[in-house]
Design a protein around this nucleic acid. Structure first.
Lengths: 163, 163
DNA sequence: TAACGACAGTTGACGCTTCAAGTCCTCCGG
DNA sequence: CCGGAGGACTTGAAGCGTCAACTGTCGTTA
């Protein structure tokens, strides 16, 4: 609104870099969604939710924590878990330790689903990203990604998960 | 579906890198959309459409080309241009040279809108990305981005614009 | 000049995400 | 033991994107 005189425009190097990054953040999610939808009938977010659960002890997690790990809002998660529950891959239970929380639990059928979907998804990630990059670039990307995420959300603690 | 024996899983370095990239492609679009929505009442895609038009001679472009430059489907663009037209920022004309094409033209009012929105958007891009990176990293990001986009869509010609 | 095929763009229905209430549970102060 | 505050979800409506079907224009062929 109140344009501060002249802002610092992007240098032409930055501009080139920005165009590339823009294309990535548009096209990569689209491509990954397409692969999962085609081969497994899952959206990327649905997959992520189940994948996170599959790596937890007890295959369960409180909704609010799950939302954080899956990079989505609690409301979005609630809707999605609803659908996953109808398909029999997840079910909900009040947390025995504190009734305010709800635990999302991956069912056996859900586990099978993730296990079946994982190879194709990993192959897509390889194909679109890591096969196209040198190991050094993969390393650089990790560092760059961390910095950007920290700049957006300094309180994010989902990135360095305890092994 | 038919899991090829054991796929090549991601190495732990790649996994770290992948977690970071995932967070970026989720959170960065969200953060950019939020800034534009809050300060200018525009979605990132709407902004991009008008920004692309603003840099064209005649401030106009055929719909199909515009869709490519703005990284969106033709159908999506059609809906969005509809809304922008209702707000008086863009209008449509059949291409005089070939009636099968439609030209999207940025109006004076639309030009003003982009000019007003640009500084805030550029500031957000700086804040979330380039202020957090060293110049070397910005360079690396450009190269990495190019490679990923090319892996996804080898026919993409929007990235390396002359100079 | 009439018919066909190809392609640009539009439209409407459906599904998903967001936003803004609303509900339920627990803790704490009286 | 009761009532209010606060946090954790849930729900319903509204908006946007996708998909598939449709319209309209041009170039080609007969």
């Amino acid at each position: 609104m109140d344009a501060p005189a002249e802002p610092r425009w992007l240098a032409s190097d930055e501009r080139r870099s920005w165009l590339a990054l823009t294309a990535v953040i548009i096209k990569l999610p689209f491509a990954l969604d397409a692969q999962l939808q085609r081969d497994a009938g899952l959206s990327h977010f649905e997959y992520q939710v189940m994948a996170v659960l599959s790596e937890r002890p007890g295959r369960s997690l409180r909704m609010s924590h799950l939302a954080g790990f899956a990079n989505g809002s609690l409301s979005r998660l609630s809707h999605v878990v609803n659908r996953l529950e109808k398909r029999g891959w997840v079910h909900r239970t009040p947390d025995p330790e504190d009734g305010r929380f709800t635990l999302a639990v991956l069912t056996d059928s859900g586990w099978d689903k993730v296990v079946a979907a994982a190879p194709g998804h990993v192959a897509a990630v390889r194909k679109y990203v890591y096969d196209a990059l040198t190991p050094e670039q993969a390393e650089q990307l990790a560092e760059i990604g961390h910095r950007i995420v920290t700049a957006i959300d300094p309180d994010d603690h989902c990135l360095p998960p305890p092994t």
